[in-house]
Write a protein that binds this DNA or RNA. Structure first.
Length: 301
DNA sequence: GACACGTGGAA
DNA sequence: TTTCCAAGTGT
């Protein structure tokens, strides 16, 4: 059956809802941004921090971040460099700049309040389809379809009978995910986070814990004997010797330095002089580094 | 659609 | 030790 035809009948959907929502009520992690008193801004921050980043690593940074900048106005008033420094080693530090830019837009365009609808959320820097849906659902209880890597993997296995989702999100996947979202808005929000949680804790990429799965009996992948992934092997992310590695090393030096560093000091970031210069230039271009008097470098003020 | 973009823990 | 990959976005 082509993936575009994969679907679940109504009785089956109701059963998935019941079992997955019950599982979530018993096994959901007590993440701080799930507290009832968390503001939409707090949810927004958590979703940006969680992009491509394990949730466990986000938690301590989120706690200190919300203490320091409890509202968009607080963050908007901060310097980019301090924001990048506080981002620490979460990775993809451009997210920190965009989060601050989003805070500025929220203050200047949206009266200091996080927008509730996806279309408006999508206009904010660093907010794509996933984050817009997640904030609408988890901060405002909107009925929408949240599709992240967990949801894609769970549906690939449960409904399509495949071990892995496609390399990139397809329209068919989005349609399938939308077709199983509960009609009721509050329930839909819980459903979206419940499927994500199931993917994160049980239906994991590497070592799925099928014996703990609340919908094991309905899983197409398990029923067909858990066949191994067919098709092209996913290309691993290159790392050693890449610009990304050098950029990360430069930024780590600057985060840890109280003042501007010389080009010589930054040479610790990599042995290739041409690559180092290229990376410094691209970091400046990205707004992550600021040149001082042409010869020294620091996080942007 | 393909690529670039950080980081570190688990297997 | 190397590889995998994690609540994606922007170009």
């Amino acid at each position: 059956m082509p993936a575009s035809r994969a679907q679940v009948d109504l009785r089956e959907v109701a059963d998935l809802h019941e079992n997955i929502l019950r599982w979530y009520s018993r096994h959901a992690r007590a993440l701080p941004w799930r507290d009832a008193e968390t503001t939409p801004w707090g949810v927004f921050v958590s979703e940006v921090m969680a992009q491509q980043t394990p949730v466990a690593r986000v938690e301590p940074v989120w706690l200190s971040w919300m203490q320091r900048w409890p509202t968009p106005a607080h963050l908007a008033a901060e310097s980019p460099g301090e924001v990048v420094r506080a981002w620490g080693r979460l990775g993809y530090p451009r997210r920190a700049l965009r989060l601050r830019e989003a805070a500025v837009a929220i203050v200047e365009v949206h009266d200091g309040r996080v927008p509730a609808d996806e279309e408006t959320l999508r206009t904010l820097p660093g907010v794509g389809a996933y984050t817009a849906a997640a904030v609408a659902a988890f901060a405002f209880g909107r009925r929408t379809t949240v599709v992240d890597t967990n949801v894609r993997r769970v549906l690939a296995r449960l409904v399509e009978g495949r071990e892995q989702a496609a390399p990139a999100l397809t329209a068919a996947e989005s349609a399938l995910a939308a077709s199983v979202v509960p009609a009721d808005a509050p329930t839909s929000a819980t459903w979206n986070v419940a499927v994500m949680e199931l993917g994160a804790l049980v239906c994991k990429a590497r070592a799925p814990q099928c014996e703990q799965c609340p919908v094991l009996e309905r899983c197409a992948w398990v029923q067909s004997g858990r066949p191994a992934h067919e098709g092209p092997v996913r290309r691993g992310q290159a790392w050693h010797g890449t610009d990304r590695q050098v950029r990360g090393a430069v930024l780590q030096l600057l985060r840890d330095a109280p003042r501007a560093l010389s080009r010589t000091a930054l040479a610790d970031a990599g042995p290739d002089a041409a690559q180092l210069d290229r990376c410094i230039a691209s970091l400046i271009e990205d707004g992550l580094v600021e040149p001082v008097a042409g010869t020294r470098f620091r996080l942007p003020h």
